[in-house]
């Protein structure tokens, strides 16, 4: 959010500069006004696009390297962005099997024999804060941690 507000300020400045350039041309007043309106319209659009882009890139910025654990040990490590063909991984545990579906950029628990099915209801893995967990079958699907796998920080008051 902070980022997009800074960019708004920058393009306001740019707008002023273009505006004063126009003023130097000896053209009719209405033409100048029309031009100014178009410049404003375009710069507003540009700011909106930039804002949207920053917003989207912020959301999808965590690395796409995903780790699958069973019983606490790493089963497979996958870069979701390099997946070309959709595939399934089947893991069997105490309560039957879990079928994990992997496609380009996406991973989810397709089906599971566990009693609660929470892992399936979780849907796709979206962020590093909520891993896909199948507690009965001890399966965890999570993004690879970039910050040494820290789960929380004590003392940092927001």
């Amino acid at each position: 959010m902070k980022k997009s507000s800074t960019s708004t300020r920058n393009s306001d400045k740019q707008n002023d500069i273009i505006g004063s350039d126009l003023y130097d041309c000896s053209q009719t007043v209405s033409y100048k006004v029309k031009n100014r309106i178009w410049i404003i319209v375009f710069s507003v659009l540009a700011v909106l696009c930039l804002g949207a882009w920053l917003f989207i890139s912020n959301i999808s910025s965590p690395s796409k390297i995903v780790e699958i654990y069973q019983n606490g040990s790493l089963v497979e490590k996958i870069d979701l962005n390099s997946v070309t063909n959709e595939r399934e991984i089947t893991l069997s545990g105490e309560h039957g099997t879990n079928i994990i579906l992997i496609s380009n950029g996406h991973i989810k628990m397709k089906s599971a024999d566990c009693p609660d099915k929470l892992c399936v209801k979780h849907g796709e893995l979206k962020n590093s804060y909520s891993p896909i967990v199948c507690l009965p079958n001890k399966v965890v699907i999570k993004f690879e941690n970039s910050s040494d796998g820290v789960d929380a920080k004590a003392g940092a008051v927001r």
């Binding site: 654990y69 019983n71 606490g72 891993p131 967990v133 507690l135 001890k138 965890v140 040494d148 796998g149 820290v150 789960d151 929380a152 920080k153 004590a154 003392g155 940092a156 008051v157 927001r158």
Partner: peptide, 29 residues
């Protein structure tokens, strides 16, 4: 608000990792 509480272990049985903030720069630990 800066107080951390762990209940049990992580779902996979591992210990939780709780960073201690660096008082000189709380973005670090």
């Amino acid at each position: 608000g800066g107080n951390v509480r762990a209940v049990g272990t992580k779902p996979d049985g591992e210990l939780w990792s709780v960073a201690v903030a660096d008082p000189n720069d709380t973005s670090k630990s």
